[in-house]
Design a protein around this nucleic acid. Structure first.
Lengths: 122, 122
DNA sequence: AGTAATAACAGTAATCATTACTACTTATAA
DNA sequence: TTATAAGTAGTAATGATTACTGTTATTACT
């Protein structure tokens, strides 16, 4: 991967952001320092940064991919009403989440990402 | 929610499926018993069934929503190569997953779904 | 430093999963 | 049994993402 001003700006913004920006939010923000950056460039670099493991993605029900720069293991609180994503870094036990954040848990989901048996043997 | 032959067939298919079908897979399958069912009907009912809590969704990187009828708490193994989703129901500890399933875990994600503080007070 | 090779870019067109819309049909409550 | 409104089929529209094309910029090698 070569060095590029555009990708540096994109990565920088995501790494510093506390929210979980979408491609469009990245585009709007980076446009302030690189006015003629292309939306296609943003998408291409986001995909590249995910592939290379510099950032990760979070899916919500708003049908847009959200990006995240904090790679430390943590839990996401995902509001079904407003789609807001909140990070919880402390090893807070489930019953304590409500007291500490005011977030009412209704369900949970745990996903392990990796390579399945079949793809490992290919 | 009224009774409808289309929705019954859709729910039935998802509840019986061991894979995690997409809207299109549901459409193709239900079409065998209701040949003139509309894809729009499938989407509308899937959203309704999710809203009413009869089924849930699983997101992969293939940009399609996958549906799931098994509401028992379990873990998903999501292959980054082929996007296959495998369910793990036993409380298998992370180190044991590989031995039991051949799935090589690279990262994990835990999400709690619910209502945030702000939306609760509205 | 000069240059060739090619990764990356801007701008725009295309894709495709999902949603919205419309006129018709059917479940169900009174 | 009939009114009403939820549900449907079929199709058009939307919108996030990707693909494409001609140009620019990085980097490895003389």
């Amino acid at each position: 991967m070569r060095k590029s001003r555009q990708r540096d700006a994109i990565l920088d913004y995501i790494k510093c952001s506390t929210e979980h920006p979408t491609a469009d939010m990245v585009y709007e923000s980076v446009k302030q320092s690189i006015p003629n950056i292309s939306l296609g460039t943003v998408y291409r670099n986001l995909n590249q940064l995910v592939d290379e493991g510099f950032i990760t993605v979070v899916e919500t029900s708003d049908k847009k991919v959200h990006y995240e720069g904090n790679l430390n293991e943590h839990i996401h609180l995902l509001c079904k009403e407003c789609c807001n994503i909140t990070d919880v870094f402390r090893k807070t036990e489930v019953p304590d989440v409500y007291e500490e954040t005011g977030f009412k848990i209704q369900s949970q989901k745990t996903v392990y990402y990796g390579i399945c048996k079949k793809c490992l043997n290919t």
